[in-house]
């Protein structure tokens, strides 16, 4: 016998089963704890409640009912507006920093990038608690502004308003926007920018005709994350937004946990999911078209 056969043989069946065995636990897990819960939300949204008890049914009454309540319309509109505003604000705020890190930071770029993302890992509850210290009537910002004589009375609109919610959300999702923008901008070759400038394009035209279109993929990916997360975010509006102007997520939580009307809350959750899905689908379509055009 030659040396090869000193090495023990393993059954080929086991070898063939390995890939499935590796993937199966995660897939099963995600089906039970992700697909099923989402399916349950869809299911419950067409059920009925009767004196706080769930009754299986198939009715669209919950959907009709929620759209008949103007308060819910207002909350939905406020959520979409806030998410859209936060998305635009994040894009504008993140772009120069992403550009700086990608093109000007040299060997510091790795550390600067990590430093942008690091606050994202701090518990959202703690970050929001910090903003309460900053934005309150007796908070840091008002104290400083009054000491500097910028304002006589504390600015009360800073906390418990859509403004504070927006600030909290921008703070929360800014890191998420820098990341894809950085990736897109670092893919722009300096030569292309050089070429535009050599062809006597002004810096402004170079920006609008070279840099901005080429960073579009990063802008879109960042926008999707910002918008989708901003739309469904609960902690920030609940702690910073106050109780007067409710966001959609607050209404859903209220419906579920305080009013215990699960079918109605589930129907609202489905509306939220549809919006999220629409945003994702739109961006996917755009990305697919854009990558088709450039042939990448």
């Amino acid at each position: 016998m030659s040396a090869a056969h000193d090495i023990p043989r393993r059954r080929p069946l086991l070898r063939a089963a390995l890939p499935a065995a590796g993937l199966l636990p995660l897939v099963l897990w995600q089906i039970v704890f992700f697909v099923v819960p989402v399916a349950l939300i869809f299911g419950v949204s067409v059920w009925r409640t009767q004196s706080y008890r769930l009754i299986p049914a198939f009715t669209f009454d919950n959907y009709i009912a929620i759209f008949a309540r103007p308060a819910i319309w207002r909350a939905l509109l406020l959520s979409v507006e806030t998410a859209a505003f936060v998305t635009v604000a994040c894009a504008v705020l993140a772009f120069p920093v992403a550009y700086f890190i990608a093109k000007k930071a040299g060997r510091w770029r790795g550390l600067l990038l990590v430093a942008v993302i690091a606050p994202f890992w701090i518990s959202i509850v703690m970050r929001v608690a910090a903003w309460r210290l900053l934005l309150g009537e007796r908070g840091v910002i008002n104290q400083v502004a009054m000491t500097l004589g910028l304002t006589d009375a504390p600015m009360s609109f800073l906390l418990y308003s859509p403004v504070s919610t927006a600030i909290g959300l921008i703070y929360a999702y800014l890191p998420l926007y820098v990341l894809p923008l950085y990736a897109a901008i670092s893919n722009i070759h300096d030569n292309w920018i050089e070429a535009a400038l050599d062809l006597n394009a002004s810096p402004a035209r170079t920006f609008f005709e070279v840099i901005l279109p080429l960073s579009a993929p990063g802008l879109v990916v960042g926008a999707v994350f910002c918008f989708v997360f901003g739309l469904g975010e609960f902690v920030t509006p609940a702690l910073l937004g106050g109780g007067k102007q409710l966001m959609f997520s607050q209404v859903i939580q209220d419906e579920f946990q305080r009013r215990l009307d699960w079918p109605s809350g589930a129907a609202m959750a489905v509306v939220l999911l549809v919006l999220v899905f629409a945003a994702l689908a739109l961006s996917m379509k755009w990305i697919r078209r854009a990558s088709g055009e450039t042939g990448l």
Partner: peptide, 15 residues
């Protein structure tokens, strides 16, 4: 990742 945490949470409550 993209599912709003609120929705996942409520779905799990039902589950």
């Amino acid at each position: 990742v993209v599912l709003p945490q609120l929705v996942l949470g409520l779905g799990l409550v039902v589950l």
